[in-house]
Design a protein around this nucleic acid. Structure first.
Lengths: 140, 140
DNA sequence: GTTTATGCAAATTCTTTGCAATACT
DNA sequence: AGTATTGCAAAGAATTTGCATAAAC
């Protein structure tokens, strides 16, 4: 049944379900934080990094995941929460701790939107706050 | 007089003014968009890339500039607008065109802030909207 | 049997560092 | 002289591509 769920998510976005794609999806779903390519390579030791990379690209193109950039120019990938459509209201704020380099998701905090001039079409929004997390604040 | 202005900006942030630093500052001030290391290297052909890199780092440490990440994990640097202090209210929204890869600054649009739980200390905020700019929208 | 996906290796791109030479005070 | 800055070269880190093999339909 869990397996069915993965298939469903992939089929929903018109992604042909291969073993590797299911594996990547499963791994992303198991995490509470966005994961980078490196993180995924460590978590999935049966797959080559380039294969993970290509699977992520397929996921991106089909709007199953989206990218956020952590504070260091590294791409982190995150499953779109809405099963149906990865909408703007889906996007939430992230907090990057400059001390421990961890990313925190604030799913309950939708990103406030801004009005742009005529002609600018918004696809996605990154709202990243950089600072110090409670843990690192204590240890100082 | 203009030259004095550069010196003033550097001195304000306790940065020893060298010829190269003035050059980088001058270049950054001449641009309306955040510039990446590569852009700067092209614009400043008298300086080695590593020197520009190190100057930027000095500027960062002294809060003369801040980084924003464009949509592709590339660091773009931008002068803090306030001469006195690079505050949160200084930060503004950016728009990244996924088609022509250009970054647009919306200096008049301050970033709406979000409440984080107790203990999270905010240093800076990146608000990056990705989408299609008016020009690229037309050419499609 | 044709198309699609995968793994390996290597190329690219961007960032960062070591070190010797230069400039500054 | 002594410290800080710079340029060159090369190392690192992350991403991306070419190509031959393997899997799927």
């Amino acid at each position: 049944m869990k397996a069915d769920y993965y298939l469903k998510r992939l089929k929903q976005k018109d992604i042909k379900p291969t073993a590797n794609r299911i594996l990547v999806l499963k791994t992303l779903l198991s995490l509470s934080c966005p994961a980078g390519l490196n993180d995924l390579e460590i978590l999935i030791d049966t797959m080559d990094k380039s294969s993970i990379f290509r699977v992520l690209n397929v996921f991106l193109e089909h709007n199953l995941i989206h990218v956020i950039e952590d504070g260091n120019g590294i791409h982190k990938f995150e499953i779109c929460s809405g099963e149906e459509h990865c909408s703007l209201s889906d996007m939430h704020a992230h907090f990057y701790c400059e001390s421990c380099h961890q990313i925190f998701c604030f799913k309950n905090r939708p990103i406030p939107t801004i009005e742009f001039p005529e002609g600018f079409v918004t696809h996605s929004i990154n709202y990243l706050v950089k600072g110090t997390c409670p843990k690192c604040k204590k240890n100082k």
